[in-house]
């Protein structure tokens, strides 16, 4: 396939070099820009701190022990909020996908609420539950529920009917049909939904920590804004990205384990 849009394939060595160049170039450009601001006095240098300042700030916060409190606060909220959202989504989504009556009962409610950007509901959570942990956790549960519920319903609904017939003709009873055929067949897509939910929890936790929190990475960012601590803002944002990256990696690892049958070479791609 050498003639085409992409041109010739790039050998691995050169590809690696290009990626490395890009990362180094990115950091160099950033450093140069922040250096230039200082040297040429373009604007107040606190607005564009160099990468070393950001790393230094994180290291300092970690050294003082504060970082762990904030990390723990965010992780705790995400874990509980997302966990509850996932339980609800699976608990309602599996029966809704499997039984038409349940689906007809639940879907209108979901369809009514889903077009509303979840962030619009945050103030309502604060008014109802107060500004403490409850509203933050409850809000994550609310926001992550919808995509996970919808993918679960879809995943269960689109299981190949031929598989069901094959199992029935081998004598599978309804219970066995659900646990031995439908669940394994729907699992890959359900896990995709879970991955979406993880990403979304980090997406929305930030803003609820902006509004009236005393701990958490979101708090660090907003606190940084109030005192023009730009390195702290950037550092906390990068840490959030790291957490999201790790969360995504964890679900992917689970996905690879449980969906090995999808890869015909036996090894996960």
């Amino acid at each position: 396939m050498e003639w085409g849009l992409r041109g010739a394939a790039i050998p691995r060595q050169r590809a690696l070099r290009l990626r490395l160049t890009s990362v180094i170039g990115f950091l160099a450009l950033w450093s140069l820009a922040s250096g230039a601001v200082v040297v040429f006095k373009l604007f107040n240098p606190i607005f564009l701190p160099g990468p070393w300042l950001v790393v230094g700030d994180i290291v300092e916060l970690a050294g003082k022990g504060q970082l762990w409190t904030h990390l723990a606060a965010t992780l705790y909220r995400v874990a509980i909020g997302f966990g509850a959202g996932a339980l609800l989504a699976l608990g309602l989504g599996l029966p809704a996908g499997h039984i038409r009556a349940v689906r007809n009962l639940l879907e209108p409610v979901v369809e009514l609420l889903r077009p509303i950007p979840p962030l619009a509901m945050l103030p309502l959570f604060i008014v109802w539950v107060g500004i403490g942990e409850g509203s933050k956790i409850g809000f994550i549960t609310y926001a992550t529920f919808f995509p996970m519920f919808l993918t679960t319903v879809h995943a269960v609904g689109q299981v190949d009917p031929l598989l069901l017939r094959a199992a029935q003709s081998l004598g599978a009873r309804p219970r066995q049909l659900f646990f031995r055929i439908i669940l394994p067949a729907a699992l890959p897509e359900i896990l995709t939904g879970i991955r979406l939910g993880v990403a979304l929890s980090f997406f929305v936790i930030v803003i609820s920590e902006f509004i009236g929190a005393e701990h958490g990475l979101g708090y660090l960012i907003n606190d940084g804004r109030n005192f023009f601590l730009v390195p702290q803002m950037l550092g906390a944002a990068v840490l959030l990205g790291l957490l999201g990256y790790v969360g995504n990696g964890l679900v992917r690892a689970i996905e690879r384990r449980v969906t090995r049958w999808q890869h015909h070479d036996g090894a996960a791609a």
Binding site: F202, I207, V230, G241
Partner: peptide, 15 residues
Amino acid sequence: VRPIPPLAFLPMFLV
């Protein structure tokens, strides 16, 4: 950049 929740950069943009 992608895994960083965009809202985490919102205060940055305000600054």
